[in-house]
Design a protein around this nucleic acid. Structure first.
Lengths: 193, 193
DNA sequence: GTCTATAGTTAGATAGAC
DNA sequence: GTCTATCTAACTATAGAC
């Protein structure tokens, strides 16, 4: 299942990441993790205290990976609107949904501050970075100064997360495409030329 | 738990609606449903074939309820933008999330066409109604005719669903408020005066 | 480090008495 | 219609051998 040699703890973490993405915390059993990782019962409990500890490691890693991916678009070239559009149009596995946003629907994740923290941090960081991109665009005279950067940043992140929801409901990427293109058009109308 | 007398099947359906909202399909057990409804094992299986049949009844009812609620704002008074703003600002239990959108994160719901159908219908209907409101606004000369009504409608529904995600991640309604107000401001900028 | 054995609990349902 | 009994499997571990 893994092309390169990987330690047992690594395989356990990656398997947990995948299962949390597909089935959430409530829907993921230690047994399923072990089978996907090709590790035995005793092996898993030797490296991790239990499901919560393993889940925390997996959630933290997924959160870090998403933040790095987002940063690629934000720090790229182009105007503020172009960079936002690049972010929204980035190639995504839309029907699989967002591995981080998905966790907000899990009762045990939101109820546990430790598990929820990396999720909160990811969206907090994302929103701050987008706010900075928009503010920079205003400072450079590219964007209408009347635009509220923080509100607009939240709108953009929400469109993305909501786009996933609509796509999964419809079992089609079409609503995701419409939602993101609609947002890009609304933002582009505020560009100064 | 219920103020008025209610039949056992009714109590089972309402309990299932609540549990699906809170914990999703995967996280909801027949046992938990029975306890919340104050019904016994045999009673539940007498009225419903099993968990899937009961869940379908509950999902259908939640879907109908949401569509009725939305219709109140759409058919109300005001310009197109005002009606959209009323919809986005409607009083909501933001931290509980959307009972329908929530189901899109459930692997067993999206994998079962029968369970997914009411969810797809709800967002399909919602998007069509919003598209009609925006198109009407354009016909009345209230809204920029350059705006794509279908894309913008999808954007609005996505902002709402994504707003819930951000709020639950932050355990605060603030990101939801920012996302929806940001969207309203973007849309208001396209109003013609 | 990994394996097997064991164990209490819950999931999801069926059978049959009342 | 509702209740209790019963059932197979899975869940989430712990213990101890290797």
């Amino acid at each position: 299942m893994y092309s390169v040699a990987m330690s047992t703890p690594e395989r356990l973490i990656e398997s947990t990441q995948e299962l949390l993405w597909e089935r959430g915390y409530v829907g993921t059993s230690p047994r399923a993790i072990q089978q996907r990782a090709g590790a035995g019962q005793g092996s898993m409990y030797h490296h991790f205290k239990g499901k919560p500890e393993l889940a925390l490691a997996a959630i933290r890693r997924s959160a870090d990976e998403r933040q790095s991916l987002a940063e690629e678009q934000f720090s790229g070239p182009g105007t503020a609107v172009e960079r936002v559009a690049n972010y929204l149009r980035r190639e995504r596995d839309v029907l699989r949904g967002c591995p981080i946003g998905r966790l907000t629907q899990d009762p045990e994740v939101v109820a546990d501050p430790t598990l929820r923290q990396p999720v909160a941090d990811t969206f907090g960081h994302l929103t701050l970075r987008l706010t900075a991109v928009l503010t920079e665009g205003q400072a450079l005279g590219q964007l209408d100064p009347e635009l509220d950067p923080a509100d607009t940043a939240a709108t953009i992140v929400a469109v993305l997360q909501g786009g996933y929801v609509l796509a999964r409901a419809a079992d089609s990427v079409e609503p995701f495409r419409r939602a993101t293109e609609g947002a890009i058009a609304l933002l582009a109308a505020r560009e100064l030329r």
